[in-house]
Amino acid sequence: MKPWIKKTLIGLTSVTVVLGGLSACGSRGHHGEGWSAERVSEVRGKVVEKISGKLELDVAQKQKLGTLADQIIASRTAFRGESADPRTELKTLIAGEKFDRTAAQTLLDQKTQAIQGNAPQTINALADFFDSLNPEQQKQVREKLERRHGWWGRG
C-alpha cells in the first residue's frame, strides 16, 4: 500500500475515532439518553476550535476541517441508523432462546452499507483538509498520530 494512502486511512480512522467517540459516549451520567443535535453541534464546535488552535489554521483550512467534522457526524448518524438506542438492537438478538443469526446478519449488512456509502465523501473531506495544510501543519498531524494521543490529551 502506498504511504500516502496508508497515512490517509490512519488519519481518517483517527479523526473518526475521536469525533465518533465524542458523539457516542453521551454525557456522563446519562448514558442511555444519547446526545441531542444541539449537544453534537456544541462538541463539534469545540473540537474544531481546539484543532484549529493547535494547528493555527487559516479560514479556508478551518472551513475544510468543519466540512470534515460534518461528514464524520453524518457518517455516524447513517451508521447508527434509526435506532435511538443501539443496545436495544443487540438485546433483540439475544432475547430469544437462541441468538438471532439472521437479524444479526441483517444488522451487520445495514451497518456495512452505511459505512461504505459514506466512506468516499469522508475520505474526500479528510483528503481536502489534509491537502490544504502546509508542510509544517502536516508534520504536526503526523507527530500527533505517532504519539497516539488525542488532540486534548497529555501529549
Rank of each mutant, 00 (worst) to 15 (best):
L68P: 02
D100T: 03
E49N: 10
E82D: 06
E42T: 13
S52L: 11
T67E: 15
I72Q: 02
A95S: 12
A95C: 09
Q63L: 13
E49A: 15
R76W: 08
E82G: 09
K64P: 15
S83P: 00
L55T: 07
G81D: 01
A104D: 07
L107I: 08
S83V: 02
G96N: 11
A78W: 08
S52K: 10
V43W: 07
A95R: 14
K54H: 08
R44A: 01
K91I: 03
R44S: 03
P86W: 02
V59T: 13
L57V: 05
T106H: 10
F99D: 04
D85T: 02
G66C: 08
G53W: 06
G66D: 12
S75L: 10
A104P: 05
K62H: 14
A69T: 02
T106Q: 15
Q71L: 09
K64L: 15
V43I: 12
A104V: 08
I72T: 07
V48K: 00
A103S: 12
E56A: 14
D58F: 03
K91G: 07
G66I: 08
K46V: 09
L65T: 03
I51P: 08
G96R: 09
F79I: 11
D58T: 05
V48L: 00
V43C: 08
G45F: 00
L107M: 14
D70N: 03
F99E: 03
T77S: 14
T77Y: 10
T88P: 03
R80G: 04
L65F: 09
S75Q: 11
I72R: 01
E42C: 11
E49I: 02
K50P: 02
A60D: 15
I73G: 02
T92H: 13
A78M: 11
K91Y: 06
E56G: 11
I51G: 06
Q71H: 10
G45R: 00
I73M: 06
K50I: 06
V48I: 03
E56V: 12
S83K: 00
A84C: 02
K64H: 15
I94S: 14
G45A: 00
Q71F: 07
Q71Y: 06
T92Y: 09
A103P: 08
L90N: 10
F99N: 05
G96K: 10
L57K: 05
K50E: 05
K54F: 07
D100C: 04
L65G: 03
A84H: 04
Q105T: 09
L68R: 01
R80P: 04
D58W: 05
I51M: 11
I72K: 00
R101L: 14
R101C: 14
R87C: 05
G66N: 09
R44C: 01
E97V: 08
K98Y: 14
R80I: 00
E42G: 06
S75H: 13
E49Y: 01
R44I: 00
V59N: 13
T88M: 13
T88Y: 11
I72Y: 02
L107F: 07
E49P: 01
A78V: 14
E56D: 12
A60N: 10
R101M: 14
K46L: 14
K98C: 13
E56I: 13
